[in-house]
């Protein structure tokens, strides 16, 4: 069963976990800003919150497809998602934005530059997310690495409410192993690449906390309509 005991591999296709993660990756979602709303910060934030709510639905269904996630008890599945949901949303935005210079691709039909972010009150967040984009772009982050890192962010979400710590550790280990395995085959020239990827996670955590704080204050403001799942997860933090 253990990969390393097999004969040498020639293609990327043999990493079973990475392949499952590639298959589980959700479709891209369109933002579809409401044409009836007047342009301005409220419209921009309403569009982003609506998009986030729909992405969250997809991400929850994605989590269920991660190898090993469904063996966790329901309460631990919830705890991981309640801690990592914003990291998952942001990492998807970051990956979509890799080909763009200084713009964030929230959706194919919703790309924001610094000017637009500023007028939506999102400049600080925009700059923080761009820092992640630049870091991954300079590494040449691949789709395989992106899906694996996203799964690791979920499994490594450091919730304080995990009941079966050992089971979560098994999930972390299997994803970590998949990343190490992938890098040892595809990037044998850089033995530190897996570590470099893992070392981006603190910035993702920090950026996610910033985003959650910001959207919590928008929620308290009460001027932007938010859907129930997005609200529920904001309240969980």
């Amino acid at each position: 069963q253990h990969h390393r005991n097999r004969s040498p591999r020639s293609s990327k296709d043999e990493n079973k976990v990475v392949n499952l993660l590639l298959e589980a990756e959700p479709e891209r979602v369109c933002a579809m800003p409401d044409p009836a709303l007047p342009d301005g910060d409220i419209k921009a934030l309403t569009t982003l919150c609506d998009l986030a709510d729909r992405e969250l639905m997809l991400n929850i269904s994605w989590a269920k497809h991660l190898p090993g996630f469904s063996s966790l008890c329901l309460s631990d599945q919830m705890s991981l998602l309640q801690s990592a949901w914003m990291e998952i949303l942001i990492l998807r935005v970051v990956f979509r934005s890799l080909p763009c210079e200084d713009r964030l691709v929230f959706a194919d039909d919703y790309v924001m530059d610094a000017e637009q972010a500023k007028s939506a009150g999102l400049l600080e967040l925009h700059l923080a997310i761009l820092q992640l984009v630049r870091r991954y772009r300079s590494m040449g982050l691949e789709r395989e690495e992106f899906v694996t890192l996203k799964a690791i962010a979920l499994a490594n979400s450091d919730s304080m409410h995990i009941e079966d710590v050992e089971a979560v550790q098994v999930l972390q280990d299997s994803l970590h192993e998949a990343l190490l395995d992938y890098e040892s085959v595809v990037h044998a020239e850089d033995p530190r690449r897996a570590g470099k990827l893992i070392m981006t996670l603190p910035l993702l955590r920090q950026t996610s906390a910033k985003a959650v704080r910001h959207f919590c204050s928008i929620k308290q403001d009460g001027r932007v309509p938010m859907h129930k799942l997005f609200l529920e997860l904001l309240e969980a933090n």
Binding site: V17, S61, H65, P67, S71, L74, M78, E232, E235
Partner: peptide, 20 residues
Amino acid sequence: KEKHKILHRLLQNSSSPVDL
């Protein structure tokens, strides 16, 4: 758990879990 009923429901309803 009461507070997180949508997440709870979605996790219970999603299809085709994968086990290692």
